[in-house]
Structure formats: C-alpha cells, structure tokens
Design a protein around this nucleic acid. Sequence first.
DNA 1: TGTCGATTTATTGTATACAACAATACTGGC
DNA 2: GCCAGTATTGTTGTATACAATAAATCGACA
Lengths: 244, 244
Amino acid sequence: MSNAWQEDVQAAVAAGVRISDQHIVDKVRRAVLTQRLPPGTRLPEVTLGEVFGVSRSVVRKALTRLAADHVVDQRPNQVARVRAPSIEETRETFAARRLVEGEVVALLAGQLDDGALSALEQEAHREIEAHQCGDEPARIEHSLAIHHQVAELSPNRVLGAMLTDLILRTSIVIALYKRPSLASCYLDGDHPRLLARLRAGEPEKARGVIDEHLRALEDLLDLGPRETETDLMAILGRPSPAEA
Amino acid sequence: MSNAWQEDVQAAVAAGVRISDQHIVDKVRRAVLTQRLPPGTRLPEVTLGEVFGVSRSVVRKALTRLAADHVVDQRPNQVARVRAPSIEETRETFAARRLVEGEVVALLAGQLDDGALSALEQEAHREIEAHQCGDEPARIEHSLAIHHQVAELSPNRVLGAMLTDLILRTSIVIALYKRPSLASCYLDGDHPRLLARLRAGEPEKARGVIDEHLRALEDLLDLGPRETETDLMAILGRPSPAEA
DNA sequence: TGTCGATTTATTGTATACAACAATACTGGC
DNA sequence: GCCAGTATTGTTGTATACAATAAATCGACA
C-alpha cells in the first residue's frame, strides 16, 4: 500500500505547498507514467484524500479530469482505477499519434528559430548520453521532453494539445506492453534525424521520420496474441475478461 | 435570464427522470451548439443547480467535464463561461478536423456494410429535403448526424473519439462566426459525393472530398480581419482584450 | 464630478454528513 | 463441503455548511 510516492506528497504538504486538484492530477499522471501506479490500481477517493491531505471534493475533481485525460477509468458507483488500454486500443493510439505528430512536425519543419532547435538538440544529446550511461529513467525523460516540446511548439495549438494527450497515452501503453526482455525502447538516431529534417525545412521527410520512429516503437512492444495463460482462460469460455 | 431552455429541463425533472451530471453535460452541450447559450454566457453553479434541481456537487462535475470538452472556460475563483474560441483557434480547429476526418473517411472507404452506408445516405437525403424546405435546424441536425456517424464508425476508435470532439468544436465556431447574411452553411452535393467515394472504396478520393468540404465550410465563415470597432480598440492600446 | 477605498454581495473552494449502492464476509441450511 | 441468503463493510453519490476569493456597490474626499 505505502509507496515511496507518499513521501513526496507529504513533504510537499509539510512545506506548505498548496495542494489543488491540478497537483493531484500531475502527481497521479506522473506516477502512472512511471508505472509506480500500475494499470488496474484502485484509487479510492478517501485514500487519495488522506495521501494528499485534502478532502474528497478535491480528489473527485482530480479524478474527473484524469478520466477525461484517459488516465483513469471512472465508472458509476465503482472505485476509480488506473486505465489499462487494450492491445487494440494501443495500436489505435499509435496510429492516431503517427497521424497527428506527423502533421505537427511537417508544420514545424523550417519554421523553428535557432533557440528552439538548439533546445531540442540538447535534449536529444542528453538522451544519447543517458542511454550510454544506462540511465533509462533519464533517457525516457529526455525523449519525452523532445516530443513534448514538439507538441508545445506546434503552430496549430489544437493539434498540439491533441498531441500532448497522445504522447501521454502512448507512454502509458509503452510502459504496459514493453517486452520485459528489452532494457530500453531507445531507437538509435531517430531523434537527431528528426531534428535534422526540421532544421533543413523538409516537411515530408520529417513526417516520414516520425512515422518510422513510431512504427519502430510500436514494433518493440509485445502486442502479439495473448499469452498462453489468458488464452486458455478465453478458450474455456470465461464470460467477460473484465479488461477494458 | 429565463430561456425556453429551462422548460425542457423542468419538464424532465417533473417526469421523474434521473438528472445526473451526464444529463447536464448533454443539455448544456446541445444548448451551446444551437446557440441558445451564446459564447461568454455566465454559468454560475447555483443557478445551474436550481435549473436542473440538483446541488452544486453535480453541477461542478458537469462543468469540469464540459471544460475538458472545450465547451466552457473554467478559471479558478471565477464563474464558468461558455467558451468563445478565437478566430485563430477556429482556423486551427478546422485544420485539425481536416486531418482527422480525412484519415477516418480514408480508413472507412470500402469497409462499410450496406446497412451503415444506407443509413448515411438516408441522412444525406433528409438533409437535402430539409434544405429544400428551408428548415435549417433540421438540415443541421442531419448534417451533423452524418459526420457523427462517420466518427462512430471509425475503425480506429481513438481517432473516432477525437473526431467527435472536433465536430462539436467546429459546430460551435460555425455558429459563432457564421456570416449573418448567409441563411445556411449548406454545401450542395458534398455529402452525397463523400458517400459515393466511401461506397466505391476510394480512400484518397474520400479524403479529398472531406478536405474540400471542410475548406469550403471554413470559407463560408467571417474569419477575416477584425471589425472596425474592435480594431480601433486594439489600436488605441487597450491593455488586454479579455477575450480568450 | 471623478476617483479611490471600504463594505457588501455574489460566487467558488473545501470539508463534512448522510444516503445509496457494491462488494465482501458470514451464517444457516442442505 | 457447498450454496444461498443475509449482514456488514467499503465506497461512491449527493446535499449542505462554512471559508476564501472576486466582483460590485456605495460613500467619502479631493
């Protein structure tokens, strides 16, 4: 029950930081992203309230927003749970992200000033460093930072917001379906290649790089037919897999 | 203050229909869509609660969800208001919808069974009838039904949900920025053309039809430079337009 | 008369109490 | 030992009370 998670929060509370629903949303999102809160985890309102030192009112608002962000499942009269997207939805999420992020980088190609480009290149460089050091959490951090900045920089803010959402959802399912054998989902050179296209102002090439990048990422996941265990269950005619 | 709107709600309450946050969300969404609730309208929690016969708790949840749907603006310590997207955001929303709906219809081309296709064609036919009768509300209803069904039928559910959101947002800004001189935003033959492409199984043609359709729709709006009045205000150096 | 300031009002933020519902555990019968 | 029915517990749904904040109003003063 008691995660290392609670310590951060209690420290924040002790420091007098104002805990609002936004903070809870951020904390939970981050915890889900880093798999400290694995899919299916129950998130009772009172428990969350105790953890954050607020009442259910605040927690409820946070949960509603997290549900809108597809991070948790909120069903009537039932405890909220961390969402566990199906394999099918995972594929669809990747397809959607290819479409949206492809368009965003195409729009961005040749339109970025040197400052933004440099910041991106710095993140890419740090990602490589982190990977060489074997520091996977840091590597993920920098990789996410690149995509996140791309979303932020999108000239089309509507698409940018949609991309932010899709990056979050993709990250969740990557954590969920990553092949255990793989130490990392690092794809060598993809990010520098993308940035080179952006700098060179080649929209379609940039779109192509992103498309390949995301396809390669998806291929790294274990999205094949279910494992033997669950397959047997299905064959034996279990009424409902209880899996969204 | 008292709209015809309230009557429906009070009738529903009298009929013993269970009013939940979902109902409020639907009602407000619909009212915004049909411009019975024009952009900028204040939506105080107590007032809404009285109208629907529920307490603020329920209203708050509904407002939070409506904010997530980009229908209302919910800022801290401030009364929620019906969102008034800017002209820039309007253009971006249309661009996003062209991208997403284009992809969806491309995925759909040649993949629909006759039942779904027939249902769509019936809506298109009824739209034409309504237009010929001069019944604009009905025409909008049928037009929306077509796009809505396309979103529902999307093999990629993630894209489908995104499209549903974009259809709503587009409808809002159409109502907002429609040229007053125009009686209707009807585009002759576009929908039948789309359905023909879907039936024929021509993905790229279908994408092209949607793209043109949405561009034509956008061109029907008054998205030019601001009017003289507001322009003067800007020139005179008003500190902040206070308009999201 | 116009503007600044204080007071009042309107509205949201938060906590809490109770009701309704779901899931679980327990007990009695078979 | 197993199943059904019931009691209990856990959890969410809703309403309400009070605190905190923002907006509006009014009044004093220049």
